[in-house]
Design a protein around this nucleic acid. Structure first.
Lengths: 197, 197
DNA sequence: CATTTTATAATACAATTGTATTATAAAAAA
DNA sequence: TTTTTTATAATACAATTGTATTATAAAATG
């Protein structure tokens, strides 16, 4: 039954199928055939929505970023005490459940894959740096930061802390628990914010 | 002229050739043929030293870790003021020149590749966590740490800071300069150590 | 010197890859 | 209803893959 297919929806379904494949088999397993099979489609059908493999991968990668951005934005719009809001956003970046770990795993794969594609798509700009920067200025405007801080260095420090923790949570999930990550972020925020938390 | 070949040396040469290939083309380009060509050998010759591709990749990855560990150990054995020594070691982990960037790039590629090889080799344990832990205890024993610190959290924080910075230095080298990284680490060490630096 | 081992090369092979082509049928459009 | 478009499938194809086989010559060994 053709023509009743919404291309955008179908493309998302295919992208999600490719995530599942990458999650299980890594980038080496992300072949058009494996993805088509996972999506329950034939090669020809898949090709009808993505004329090339890179087009598919690019779409799938952008969808990851889109998803994460959406979730973070949702928190950012919440009515919360500033420090609590910042904490929640930071924790949202770190993969502590299966879904987030999958997303980061996929993003991780994409980045190391895309780095060596001359033309093609651009990973690295996941927008996290910009987000962290805004968070720090937000804390500053709310007069929550301690004196004596060098704000540019604090931005860099928080950015590294979050991405480093995210990386560790992904690569060695058994070493570090969700509770510890929470404690770590609270600890760090306390060290740069006034008052107790 | 056969038989005058030192297998260990040759294997290292091949491993280094594979690094160069991975550096330029990523893991997708790390085919036996590309590596053989880069090493100036035939397929048969390469196969004489590594009977399988995974054996070669595992060797090449371990060599990266070996190299980095060696360089860090060299610093650790130096006669230096404690805080200066810690700083130098931390900076050694972050890739700020071409050679270190290459090593981390290769390590990065290996990790995301090896994660999905069921049997096969084990990446992730690069020994950095253990090293950071030792550094923190070293600072503690030297009575250089401030009071009120939670040492376990400080270990985790420094570990994330260093790996996060390393990741950023690799993925977006134009955004952050060597000087900034130096300043960041000094800044962080100051925040956890007594006295000025 | 004769023989065996070692290093290298050339070639082969089956499997897998991305992409292209062709075919079919279902729905939409006329 | 007839025609066209769309979705899917099946198959084809050249290129590339890891690995295996065979061949050759240089050194080591006896």
């Amino acid at each position: 039954m053709p023509k009743i297919v919404d291309h955008n929806i179908r493309k998302r379904q295919i992208a999600e199928a490719s995530w599942r494949v990458i999650l299980e088999q890594g980038m080496e397993g992300a072949t058009v055939r494996n993805i088509a099979k996972e999506a329950g489609l034939s090669l020809g059908a898949l090709r009808h929505y993505f004329s090339t493999q890179d087009a598919l991968l690019e779409f799938a990668m952008n969808l990851v970023i889109e998803r994460v951005t959406e979730r973070i934005t949702k928190i950012a719009l919440k009515e919360l005490p500033p420090k609590e809001k910042v904490l929640q956003i930071l924790l949202e970046i770190v993969p502590t459940d299966a879904e987030k770990m999958a997303e980061m795993e996929v993003w991780f794969s994409f980045v190391s894959y895309a780095r060596h594609k001359k033309d093609s798509f651009d990973a690295q700009h996941d927008g996290i740096y910009t987000g962290i920067r805004k968070l720090m200025y937000y804390l500053d405007e709310e007069k929550l930061l301690r004196k004596n801080l060098t704000i540019e260095l604090e931005i860099e420090r928080l950015y590294s802390l979050v991405d480093g923790t995210a990386m560790h949570a992904l690569l060695d999930p058994n070493r570090i628990e969700k509770k510890q990550i929470h404690a770590l972020f609270v600890y760090h925020l306390q060290s740069i914010c006034i008052e107790d938390f």
